[in-house]
Nucleic acid binder design. Sequence first.
DNA 1: CTGAAAGCGCTAACAT
DNA 2: ATGTTAGCGCTTTCAG
Lengths: 367, 367
Amino acid sequence: MRGSRDVRRPATLASLAAELGVSRTTVSNAYNRPDQLSAPLRARVLEAARRLGYPGPDPVARSLRTRRAGAVGLLLTEALSYAFRDPAATGFLEGLALACERAGSGLLLVPVSPELADVTAVHQAGVDGFVVYSVREDDPHFKAVLERPVPTVVCDQPLHVEGVDRVGIDDRAAMLDLARHLTGLGHRHIGVLCMRLGTGRYDGPADDARQNGATYPVQRNRLGGLRDGFAEAGIDWAGIPVHERFAHSVDAGQAAAAELLAAHPEITAIACTSDILALGALRHAAERGLAVPEDLTITGFDGVPEGLRSGLTTVRQPVLEKGRAAGELLLERGDRNRPRTVVLPTELIVGTTSAVPRSPERWFSGW
Amino acid sequence: MRGSRDVRRPATLASLAAELGVSRTTVSNAYNRPDQLSAPLRARVLEAARRLGYPGPDPVARSLRTRRAGAVGLLLTEALSYAFRDPAATGFLEGLALACERAGSGLLLVPVSPELADVTAVHQAGVDGFVVYSVREDDPHFKAVLERPVPTVVCDQPLHVEGVDRVGIDDRAAMLDLARHLTGLGHRHIGVLCMRLGTGRYDGPADDARQNGATYPVQRNRLGGLRDGFAEAGIDWAGIPVHERFAHSVDAGQAAAAELLAAHPEITAIACTSDILALGALRHAAERGLAVPEDLTITGFDGVPEGLRSGLTTVRQPVLEKGRAAGELLLERGDRNRPRTVVLPTELIVGTTSAVPRSPERWFSGW
DNA sequence: CTGAAAGCGCTAACAT
DNA sequence: ATGTTAGCGCTTTCAG
């Protein structure tokens, strides 16, 4: 005997009602409003349901009727699987999942084909709202999300979108602190590694035009924070080499660090706009036999567990809190008034990967 | 001007059709079957849609009509957020996400209240099928999933469910190998740390009755593999202390190791049924000043990145592949014939946490 | 290439 | 406490 598993949705609420000789409302109530019918009748209904293999009200039909899907959609820049690979994303999602859990809402990961502009997945998603995690300003999927008549909350990027709530951090201020830390230590020749700045797959040096044209405000702001901090110490941003990597991975960071140091051997510090890249830089240093921080200072951004474990000097941002805040903004919106922005605090973590530079510059730039 | 964001689903396919003086079919076709109407007409439709702020066909209504939700549901034992915290789960999900991505299917994380038997979330989920990740045999959520008239694939547990595909590994055989490794090194006094065996929150020694009554076949099999392996070396399972932990965390492993060693100081090796627990045991050893593997051998199971990085002796299982296989089983089912079971290979990884025991037993048990 | 008709399965007023 | 009446918004034969 195979039970109800192989029947193709044999029973519906209506058929059950007919079978029992009661109205559809009664059957519906048996499931949704137990207090609206007598216990014995309800028992009869449920018993008949079991007997006929009726699995309860169809969720899709119910959603259509109630205009509630019971789920929030999540849109990521990257491929879906990236969500589980990047530690910062993972932390964010954990927080978001926590909020969903509390609200009894499902979390639908929307399958976006990374660079393909196939937006159908966004249209397909039966959700009550979207959380958008750090996508570029002109992302077509994001545009599609905005067209859907459901509330949306953005994490990090894009900034300032009409009618959309946002949760993020002050990337610029956080990076400014980090820049001061570096210049305070005495670094004057600093290289920068940053994440992708544009749409196209590009790896290499990023000149000023490219930096300013970046469609990722977060990267723009982190670079901006560095620039401001360096300026305070009299360091001209024009002299700072910035290398960009399309892929966000330890390998990419390693390669970028190699490239950067090869082109600019005078560098005493590498500031990375993410911990992942910094971990790559660390690996490159190890491979090259460079002592960190004695020969080379390396800093990150994010404060992911693996970075912290490596003693990385970095900025810790509350990724889990970001996720939770995003979820709450979306789900517990009693005040649908005007858009809210939540800016969470960050913290400069001085680890063991930053120190006073070996002092060639002292010799040469002194008195 | 606020654009279309604040309108409450103003336009529908029908209203658009009326506005344009065409039939609903035509509007529908404009979206779903571009080849079924003239280009200019289609353009007119799309233009009017834009003008009226019509976001395209409602996904829920479409799902009701087409009987396709375009998403697969994921059921976990633990709270939703656990999915992002446990490295083995994360790997599984990455694989599953990959498969979903390929199939253009969304992935809906079903919000289960861990121990609460509130099954509504399962009923609420608008999905075309379920992937069930390692839940206990009598999980009420799982029961609810089985009642839904959609295909289901199980990962790991429960075993053998009528009409349900499954992907897993041979836990027993894998653990048998590990047991042989331990006895081969000469260990005779071995303690075991295992994950939760039952429904209730229990931490402590697990006697035979408890082991046999476990509702988690995976744990049962892993313990069984150890028992078989020890038996081969003439070690009686009755003399093997097994300690169980409800929570699956490094902290729990640490506490359990402390408890185990306190109660059984003669132990020379701790076999853990997961890497997470083993990492905890490692931490306890460090804390106690026990050298691993000189003073104490510790082994894990899973082969999660952090375990491997720590040099753990363990069994590596292909978590990502499991996820992918589960997704493919569910999504690419051309052969809806009889249930399939996919058993993936595992590999014994001998790391730096296992070695020949310091030899008190040699002195005492010798000639 | 376009339209008319017929529901998909359900819930929510509003009666009774 | 139970039934009647209307759809929710869409797709899909089947005719024209």
